[in-house]
Amino acid sequence: MYDVIVVGAGSMGMSAGYELARRGFKTLLIDAFDPPHAQGSHHGEPRLIRHVYSGGPTYIKLALRADERWRELEAASGEKLLERSGVLNLYDPAAYTYRDRFEHAAAHGIAFEELDAEQIRSRWPAVRPPEGYRAMYEPNAGYLYSEKCIAAYRRLALQAGARLLTDAFVTGVEPAGAFVTVRTEKEEWIANQVILTAGAWFRTLAPFVRLPIRAVRKVVGWFESDAPSLDAGSLPGFTFGDSTGGYYGFPSIGGAGVKIGRHDGGVEWQPGEPLAPFGAYPEDEGELRRALEAFLPGAAGKLLSSAVCKYENTPDEHFIIDDHPEHPNVLLAGGFSGHGFKFASAVGELLADRIERGRWGQDLGLFAATRFSEPTAQ
């Protein structure tokens, strides 16, 4: 018998488990694998953390709180988890507008600079934006070592008294009055409350919960660079955006190579299917290389390493953080759509607050599960 069971001990689940355990809740975390692992969305360090979002004040408030909580995790774990590299967001004004982001940044006191192509090339000679491109630079943004973050949460959660059940696939969730039974392939567990943070495996929890989450295969590559200006400490984290797609990346950290991935696109993946390795499709390397050749030509060298992970997309790419529509002692957190990791520290806190205080710590109407036309539960 547990106070809380967390189904899915990845980014959000492990954060929530740590928060609950340190507040004195008897907590069980259940994961189908052994986190941190290569089967979820946290695989392949690092992850960008930015504070200005096109989604507006809800995201900005969450990002600023997440930043505070990551710093607190660093202090508690004694590990370096967050690098203040700055983040350079390049965009084609013909395809994107950043005006609302500038306004929101100013309203929330977030430091930023608006740069033209000449200013970008002058400050970071390795970056070669086409004429007419512009950028929003956030000097206090940076990147997180995602797998180290999960490992730190795991260690601290267990020290605080949480239990972690690994390599245990959940086959069913059944509320009955004040209790919820969670079934794995071998055992049953009972709790007063349950948090579902199943990531790309949410579909396996149907029909108890039906969320319009589509899992997508995504690839990233690390490419050999030819100049120190592409190394950590010189090049900030970055994003590129134009009519052909959106990309994100990182400087070469410890000689690992410049990392780049594409945010949009991808091949749909179903739970239980094998995940095709990097190189299974010609565009795996081709699209990443073309983006580097266009914006960071000095980084378009030899492919040094690669990784495959998953996005769990909602139709509008906004998150789902809500109560189960029929069972208030079951909470839902999913659909983080490839841009959620930076918020994991704050999402875990929100889930723990909801358990402890019976209310959410901020207005989460943007993330309501009921906003979709598809029924959320049966």
Rank of each mutant, 00 (worst) to 15 (best):
F278N: 04
N313G: 03
R289M: 04
D284R: 00
P297T: 07
H318M: 11
D323T: 14
A291D: 02
E317A: 09
P315F: 11
D323N: 15
S305H: 12
F295I: 13
L296R: 00
F295A: 04
L331T: 05
I320F: 12
A294Y: 02
L304H: 14
E317S: 13
P328Y: 03
N329C: 12
P297K: 03
E283G: 06
G335T: 05
E293F: 00
L304G: 13
D316P: 08
Y281K: 14
L332K: 07
G286Q: 14
N313W: 05
S305K: 15
S306I: 00
P315M: 12
G338W: 07
E293Q: 07
Y281R: 15
G334Y: 10
A294K: 15
C309E: 05
K342Y: 04
N313K: 14
D322R: 07
G286T: 14
C309D: 10
E293W: 00
L296K: 00
D322C: 09
E326T: 09
F295P: 03
H324I: 07
A291T: 03
G301R: 11
T314W: 10
L288N: 08
G286L: 12
E312D: 15
K310I: 02
L292E: 02
I321Q: 10
A300N: 06
P282L: 04
C309R: 09
E312W: 06
P328M: 02
A344G: 04
F343S: 02
F336E: 06
E287T: 14
F278I: 00
F319I: 06
F319L: 10
S305C: 01
P297R: 03
K342G: 04
S337H: 13
A291W: 01
C309N: 06
H339N: 12
L331W: 06
A280N: 06
F295W: 15
A307T: 07
G334H: 11
R290W: 04
E285T: 05
E293S: 02
D284N: 05
E317R: 15
D323L: 14
F278W: 08
S305G: 05
F319H: 11
I321T: 08
F343T: 01
L292Y: 01
P297A: 03
G298P: 08
P282E: 11
G279C: 09
D284M: 03
H327W: 13
P282S: 08
A299C: 07
D316L: 10
N329M: 12
T314V: 03
V330I: 07
E293T: 02
A307Q: 14
G334I: 07
H318R: 15
T314R: 11
G298M: 08
Y311W: 06
E283P: 01
P282D: 11
A344K: 04
A333H: 04
H318C: 09
D284H: 08
D323S: 15
G301T: 14
K302T: 15
F295M: 13
L304D: 14
I321C: 09
I320Q: 12
D322H: 10
A307F: 06
V308C: 05
A294D: 08
H324R: 10
F295E: 04
G286R: 15
L296Q: 00
H339R: 13
E283S: 14
